[in-house]
Computed example of a mutant assay.
Amino acid sequence: MTQSTVITTFLPVFNQQQQLLALCPDFAALDQDAVIAALQHWKQLELFEQLPTLNWMVHVRDLSLLPTDLHQRLPANKIMLCIPEQVCQDQELQTRLKHFARSGFRIYTDDFQSVSDLAWSDTRDIVIDSQAGVPFSAKLWMLRLPQGQHWAKNVGTAAVLEQAVMTGFKLFSGDYAFHPAKNNSAADSSAKTRLLKLLGLVARDADSKELEDLFKQDANLSYLLFRLVSSAAFAQTVKVSNFGQAINLLGRRQLQRWLQLLLYAKQSDQGGALNPLMARAAFRAAMMEALAQRMGFNRDMSDGAFMVGMFSLLDTLFTSPLAEVLQPLSLQEDYVAALLQRSGPLGRCLQLTEMADRHYQATLRGMLTELALSDDDYLLSVTHAFAWVNQVCKDM
């Protein structure tokens, strides 16, 4: 496999329902030629085809250096060019902006800060940096550009997310999933406790009757189980008539994976939106599995890698120390060490995975070298992970 010359991280972009809609590669300080070369390499790897429903938000620093035949090199209908507002103000460059728009690229006015007039008369979609909260002027622009798919980036907390939703933004990215509101109810805690018990039963290969009894204690959990076995992902033609049949149709391995995911699946108070933490946990699980397979791990180790990724955010979910949350699960010592100390091969894979969907860190390449993974191993693992996140968001 050909080595690429560029390594990036990928920031997920979600809609109001917290379904994955786009990816924003963080190219850090790379020059524009290197960015275009990377995108062309991804096209050769068929990354765009492997994620057919997702868009790609690409930040452009120097519009004057963007080749006019870019639409012939890259899938223009998949790429959103994010152009800084101050660049859009340059009248000499607005002809180029119109050219790229006519070529099929959607143009986002990035780092938007206008308080009165538009920097570019053809502005349709804006991007606002929400690191310091949503600016007061944003509400005005939501009213003036009501058809836009406006994006709030660097949303750091659940409170800022709520503010951005109420303002009228349609797209969201940032670390808000890792900083949820502190409003877990006793009922939520009870449901999560039942899920942990179910995971423990599956792990020790308990009798189906024990699993059925726990499912029957939670109407929401029962509903999710039956909806899962009826989903397009399983394409079941058999009508499911009881808990035992549903469990058998899934199989123990798949049941275990989906129980892990269901820990995060409680819908939020934001109009029935998914829990933002679910997609991030799903990414970690699928990324860990893909890395394990590329490192030559056997099936059991790959399953363990998936579980380590999924459980790595349980402390955030339960707002309790991870060691306490893991205690009832009786996990293997190497899994516990990977989760608590980031030690061993799985721990190192987890460190890499934790970087992959956040802002770029220079230590990423060193991690790949340490794990003997090529750049393409990494890119294809990321693609596999986001494909699974995309499917999970649809099924849940």
Rank of each mutant, 00 (worst) to 15 (best):
S103I: 00
N183P: 02
S190G: 10
N77T: 09
L291G: 07
S231R: 05
R365W: 14
Q149A: 01
N390M: 00
P180N: 06
V134G: 05
V115A: 06
F112Q: 01
L221D: 05
H359L: 08
V389R: 04
V229C: 13
I247C: 11
Q217F: 09
D117G: 05
L259N: 01
L161K: 01
F172Q: 06
L20R: 02
N55L: 10
T8M: 00
R348D: 12
P146E: 05
A356E: 02
L317C: 02
T319I: 12
F172W: 05
V392W: 11
V202H: 01
P67K: 11
H59V: 01
F318Y: 12
R144G: 04
D26T: 01
V229I: 15
G271N: 08
T237K: 09
D205R: 14
Q256N: 12
N154E: 12
Y360R: 07
S230K: 10
N184I: 10
K78C: 02
Y108W: 14
C349P: 03
Q50C: 12
F283Q: 02
E289Y: 05
A76L: 06
L346W: 07
T9K: 07
Q256W: 06
V392D: 05
A76D: 06
L201I: 02
V238L: 09
A246Y: 06
A22K: 02
A164V: 01
V229R: 04
A181T: 10
Q3H: 13
L211C: 06
A191V: 06
A203T: 12
A34F: 06
F169A: 08
S103F: 02
G271R: 04
Q149P: 00
F112R: 01
V155E: 10
S312D: 13
G251V: 04
A101C: 03
Q260D: 02
T5L: 12
I128C: 09
G344L: 04
A233S: 11
Q113E: 13
D375W: 05
P25L: 05
V155I: 12
G271T: 00
L20P: 02
R253K: 13
Y335V: 09
D315A: 11
T95E: 13
I7R: 08
G271F: 03
Q332I: 05
D213I: 13
